[in-house]
């Protein structure tokens, strides 16, 4: 589906913070993915219109980044890290346990559409190995028993983790009167006043 009116308003605000609209492409794709759980063709087409990119450019860019999905995934995307520090503390065994207990292959989604399990690269929690993320929220030092408990909690809706696509639950917002001012790079400027006042370079 295309962007909702609320997301259209957010998109316009975000585009206004960048010297060139195209810079808002990835943030807007995240907005679309938060709305639908994945990137629909309609949403990508609309984002392209907003930032001045063709649908092919939008998809070609989005496809470069692993987090963007073109098909629905489970409500909860479980990324199990198996990179070096996690490997040393049983990350591969944890991934194997995750796949067995949910009865999916790596990359697969459970029949009820609740869980997708993926093998992740280093997610920056190496001292907490083996670690994983559920929709990009951390769990560390995960034993098989911890994993089973986590799945039970997720099924029961006890974790507060939002559905796939939602990242930060707080958005940046700049009141118009506080904005210093965004201008395109072509618009050559003098050195700002505080620098010029001190007699520095142009």
């Amino acid at each position: 589906m295309t962007l909702s009116p609320a997301n259209e308003a957010l998109a316009a605000e975000i585009i206004g913070w960048f010297p060139r609209p195209r810079s808002a492409l990835i943030p807007l794709l995240h907005l679309a993915q938060a709305q639908d759980g994945y990137l629909t063709d309609e949403a990508m087409r609309r984002v392209g219109e907003l930032v001045g990119a063709t649908p092919a450019e939008v998809k070609g860019t989005a496809g470069f980044y692993e987090m963007f999905r073109f098909e629905p995934v489970g409500t909860y995307l479980v990324n199990v890290c198996t990179n070096i520090s996690c490997l040393l503390w049983g990350g591969e065994e944890l991934l194997e346990h995750a796949c067995e207990s949910l009865d999916v292959e790596v990359g697969g989604t459970t029949d009820d559409g609740m869980f997708t399990v993926e093998e992740a690269e280093c997610i920056a929690a190496c001292t907490e190995a083996p670690c994983l993320q559920v929709n990009y929220r951390y769990r560390g030092r995960v034993t098989p028993a911890d994993f089973d408990q986590l799945i039970e909690d997720l099924r029961a809706g006890r974790t507060g983790i939002a559905g796939h696509g939602v990242l930060a639950q707080v958005r940046q917002s700049i009141p118009a009167e506080r904005l210093a001012g965004v201008f395109p790079p072509e618009q050559a400027r003098e050195a700002p006043v505080w620098l010029a006042r001190n007699g520095a370079d142009g």
Binding site: W17, F18, S23, I26, P27, L29, H30, A62, F64, Y65, E66, M67, F68, L167, Q172, I174, E177, R178, L179, A180, G181, V182, P192, V193, W194, R197
Partner: peptide, 24 residues
């Protein structure tokens, strides 16, 4: 008043915008 127009009542003004990646 720490970020944006007229920081701490001075003539120093700068916008800080958060951008974020998507896995690469």
């Amino acid at each position: 008043g720490y970020v944006g127009r007229g920081i701490c009542g001075s003539d120093f003004s700068v916008d800080i915008v958060m951008a974020w990646g998507a896995g690469a």
